[in-house]
Write a protein that binds this DNA or RNA. Structure first.
Length: 429
DNA sequence: GCATTGCCTGTATGTCGGCG
DNA sequence: CGCCGACATACAGGCAATGC
């Protein structure tokens, strides 16, 4: 098993680390030197000392008087350098790569930044002492996809695969559950290596928006962005860093950006899940990324769960891995209607949320439901987590879309189509 | 209801061996 | 012999289950 030890895994911290390297380069200092980089990290607040009393210069002096192999900051510098290199953000000479440049050019927390992280994380590459190269995030996404959902601890197996081959994937997939495989001595790795395997990669994949879970007790599932990344891995193969093509175009600088206009002749030709993560994000993908971030909020998830709770007695429920919030259907009755639901929280403007949801419903009806439920009548509904103005409710009615308000115990229709859907559901046994 | 416990995750520190 | 990559270990915070 490949090891991935001694790291921090938060993207803001990794970004700060890259910034520290850049500022050292600007000063002509040598970031390849553990001491230089390690104590720079300490000064920049990237690396923090344990039992720190607040006097930084004094503490650094104290650390520097210790033997070098006992200075935590130096080790941290080495490990973080390694991580940034694996991510393709710096090269072997600790110089910033194009990708690293793009990361720092994007505003922190922006959709642009997330896009760069998604590229870096999906391409993350590790090499073992024998020269075997693998892309553990791709392998991790394959695992999640294969099992549908997977516990965090199983993700250590992503580092067990020596390479990206199908054979290796089959081999590690057979090692699930990892606890049993360890007990049976089927994995050659120390418990520390296995523990380390769980600490970094799942956190990176989660922050990239590739996987998500409802809460800590739940397994992870693939998100739409994760599915897109997986398709990219499967169809194109992870792209070796050495052959990294320049990303199309330059990212906008940090000057403020007006609302962007889409090219007027832009057509949707593929589903988002079929688009590669590599390269510049399409407008749809940017929206999908933004959407993902909003929809991952606890509040949205909670609302979805409440809806699910109230429909699960009578209907089979599906969550779209790549798209819709919820489909309620009776699988047994193959010509029966189905209900496509989009859930919207009202912390944002009700009008923009409504417009967004209407577009999503129509799009998903056309592109996401066709395969599995072709030929069925699709009833569409938007579920809000609060009350909406009558004008919105009647607008949706005019479109043939049901409107609902959900609470933890109720699902109340707000227009005629909503009442129609409810009336149908209550007849089901 | 509150304290305790134990697990999960993340971060800091220590150690070894190889290489130039 | 200094330096660094790699590996191992210690420690801390959060949180949920558990027990009273």
């Amino acid at each position: 098993m490949k090891n991935f030890p001694h790291q921090y895994n938060s993207l803001p911290k990794l970004r700060m680390s890259l910034l520290s390297i850049r500022s050292l380069a600007a000063q002509g200092a040598n970031a390849a030197d553990d001491g230089v980089l390690g104590y720079r990290f300490a000064q920049d607040g990237v690396y923090t000392f344990r039992n720190f009393d607040g006097d930084l210069p004094k503490r650094i002096q104290a650390e520097q008087s210790k033997p070098e192999d006992q200075q935590g900051a130096r080790t941290a510098a080495r490990e973080i350098r390694r991580t940034l290199r694996f991510l393709g953000l710096i090269d072997n000479h600790v110089g910033e790569t194009d990708l690293g440049n793009q990361l720092l050019a994007s505003p922190q927390g922006s959709a642009d930044e997330l896009r760069v992280w998604q590229v870096a994380i999906s391409r993350l590459e590790v090499v073992d002492p024998d020269g075997n190269t693998s892309h553990p995030i791709c392998i991790l996404l394959r695992l999640v996809n294969k099992f549908g959902q997977i516990a965090r601890e199983e993700m250590a197996l992503a580092l067990e695969a020596a390479d990206d081959s199908e054979n290796e994937f089959q081999r590690i997939a057979d090692l699930v559950p990892i606890r049993d495989a360890v007990k049976a001595n089927r994995i050659k790795a120390s418990r520390f290596q296995i523990a380390n395997g769980v600490k970094i990669l799942p956190a990176l994949a989660e922050q990239a928006g590739f996987i998500s879970r409802v809460d800590q007790a739940q397994p992870y599932k693939l998100t739409s962005a994760g599915n897109a990344a997986l398709q990219s891995c499967l169809t194109q193969g992870p792209i070796a860093l050495a052959q990294l093509p320049p990303l199309v175009g330059r990212l906008p600088s940090q000057t403020k950006r007006p609302v962007r206009k889409l090219a007027s002749n832009q057509h949707v030709t593929t589903l988002p899940s079929e688009n590669a993560v590599v390269g510049i994000l399409s407008a749809e993908q940017q929206q999908a990324a933004m959407r993902l971030r909003f929809e991952r909020t606890a509040r949205h998830q909670k609302a979805v769960n409440h809806v699910a709770d109230q429909l699960s007695l009578r209907l089979d429920l599906f969550e779209g891995a790549a798209s819709f919030d919820l489909v309620a259907v009776r699988e047994k009755f193959q010509s029966e209607r189905i209900v496509l639901l989009e859930v919207k929280t009202l912390d944002a403007d009700v009008i923009s949320q409504t417009r967004l949801a209407v577009g999503q419903l129509l799009y998903y009806e056309r592109f996401s439901l066709a395969d599995r439920w072709s030929g069925r009548l699709v009833l569409k509904a938007i579920v809000f987590d609060g009350d909406i103005p009558e004008t919105i409710a009647s607008f949706l009615d005019w479109l043939g879309i049901g409107a609902f308000c959900v609470t933890s115990t109720t699902l109340e229709p707000l227009n005629d189509h909503g009442r129609g859907i409810q009336a149908w559901i209550v007849t089901l046994t």
